[in-house]
Simulated assay, not measured.
Amino acid sequence: MATIYSCKECGANLNLNTLHLFPPDFYFEAGNKNTVSFSEIDSTKFKLEKEDKIRPFFETLNYWGIQRKRIKIKCDSCGFLLGYVYDDGPPLTNTTGQLHMGPSQVIPRAPRYRFKTKALQIASET
């Protein structure tokens, strides 16, 4: 039984494979509701768009704010926003980290493609 993921806006098949789906109890998925994350995607079905946004939390002469850099995942056919790319996936190395205390944020990490379930049309194929 295969699962087909399509864009909710235009109905285009996104060619997402359930073999690359992270389990819902994985360490970064536990608190995320209404999202599904994949370790790999078919890059021909998506547009990846960089976003660099500064959100001010107070204004002074120097205009302080919080800078947020992220990458949007959009449908290649219609441009509908489907989710975001995060770099907090599993470590690319199989080490336990510095002093054997778990993976560090310094270790290069695999990208995680997180999709909003409300932006996807999920259907089962028998």
Results as ranks from 00 to 15, higher is better:
Pro103Cys: 06
Glu40Asp: 03
Asn17Thr: 07
Thr96Asn: 15
Ser77Gln: 12
Arg70His: 15
Phe46Leu: 03
Pro111Val: 00
Ala123Tyr: 00
Asp87Val: 02
Lys50Val: 04
Glu51Asn: 13
Asp76Glu: 13
Gln121Ile: 05
Ile107Glu: 13
Leu92Trp: 01
Thr44Asp: 14
Cys75His: 01
Lys69Val: 09
Thr117Ala: 08
Thr96Gly: 13
Gly79Arg: 03
Gly89Cys: 02
Leu99Pro: 00
Leu48Arg: 02
Leu82Arg: 00
Leu61Val: 09
Gly79Met: 06
Tyr113Arg: 00
Phe38Thr: 01
Asn62His: 07
Tyr63Glu: 11
Trp64His: 10
Phe80Arg: 06
Leu61Gly: 15
Glu9Pro: 00
Ala12Val: 13
Gln98Asp: 09
Thr35Leu: 03
Ala12Ile: 07
Gly79Thr: 06
Phe57Thr: 12
Ser39Glu: 13
Thr60Asp: 09
Phe26Trp: 15
Glu49Cys: 09
Ala12Glu: 14
Gly11Trp: 04
Val106Ile: 10
Leu16Arg: 03
Thr44Lys: 06
Lys69Ile: 08
Cys75Phe: 01
Ile66Glu: 12
Ser6Glu: 11
Lys72Arg: 13
Ile4Cys: 03
Ile122Leu: 08
Pro90Phe: 05
Gly11Ile: 04
Thr44Leu: 05
Ala119Asp: 04
Asn94Pro: 02
Asn34Lys: 14
Lys53Ala: 08
Pro108Val: 01
Thr95Ile: 05
Asp87Tyr: 13
Cys75Gly: 09
Trp64Gln: 10
Ser6Arg: 14
Lys118Ser: 15
Pro108Gly: 01
Tyr63Lys: 15
Phe22Arg: 04
Leu120Lys: 05
Thr35Trp: 01
Gly89Val: 04
Asp25Ser: 14
Pro91Glu: 06
Trp64Ala: 07
Thr96Asp: 14
Tyr5Thr: 03
Leu81Tyr: 12
